[in-house]
């Protein structure tokens, strides 16, 4: 994973540089984000820049792993802690399978209980209107496939725009990022997709607000 850690370091440096260079650009001149998003990584909103290979995070805290997790939720429930950047798949007996996630702007806007309403392989992508406004050259619709910012799989939540999806930018895992919802590395979201059925409960929790 040398390459991945290199990419991560590079992107953090670049993010800082990018943020200072374009501090007044429309992309960043938005309303102040919630506290949880203070250290937001300003990712390019373009369709995925990095490899489209199905990356699995294999080392470090954001690698998929078994953890101790007390929960009264039934086995199979997904619990998302946005402040920690982790998604837990409840296994019962005080255990969970934990995945590292990146949380996009939309991911901080709602908390509570929803259900997986639909699953999609290589989902289509419809950039939100404000993104079209900032980047008028984007296609208004992008059929699913490698390179698509939605990544390899998507779990749609309820009837909302909320979704758990993949990403072509695995270096964004563990960060708050400027777009998207709950993103996993493409290989990890494929794994999660195979373990989750439509109708699964999803609990989304943020840090307490002040």
């Amino acid at each position: 994973m040398n390459r991945s850690s290199f990419i991560r370091r590079l992107s953090l440096v670049a993010a800082a540089g990018f943020a200072s260079l374009f501090a007044t650009s429309a992309a960043l001149a938005q309303a102040a984000p919630p506290a949880a998003m203070r250290e937001t990584m300003a990712i390019g909103d373009e369709p995925g820049r990095v490899s489209t290979e199905e990356v699995i995070i294999r080392e470090g805290a954001f690698a998929r792993q078994l953890v101790f997790f007390r929960s009264t939720e039934p086995v199979g429930t997904l619990v998302i802690h946005t402040s920690e950047r982790f998604l837990y798949l409840v296994l019962g007996n005080n255990r969970a399978l934990r995945y590292g996630i990146g949380v996009g702007r939309e991911g901080f806007t709602w908390s509570g209980l929803v259900r997986v309403s639909r699953k999609a392989e290589w989902p289509d992508w419809t950039p939100p209107p404000e993104m079209i406004e900032r980047q008028p050259y984007l296609p208004r619709f992008m059929a699913g496939g490698p390179g698509n910012p939605m990544g390899s799989r998507a779990l749609y939540l309820g009837s909302t725009i909320y979704r758990i999806h993949g990403t072509n930018q695995p270096e964004t895992i563990g960060h708050a990022v400027s777009s998207g919802c709950f993103r996993l590395a493409n290989g990890d979201v494929i794994d999660l997709y195979s373990r989750v059925q439509t109708g699964t409960k999803v609990v989304i929790r943020h840090a307490a607000t002040l």
Binding site: F18, I43, G44, R49
Partner: peptide, 8 residues
């Protein structure tokens, strides 16, 4: 990666 690439 993305941001640097974006700038370039």
């Amino acid at each position: 990666m993305s941001c640097l690439a974006t700038r370039v």
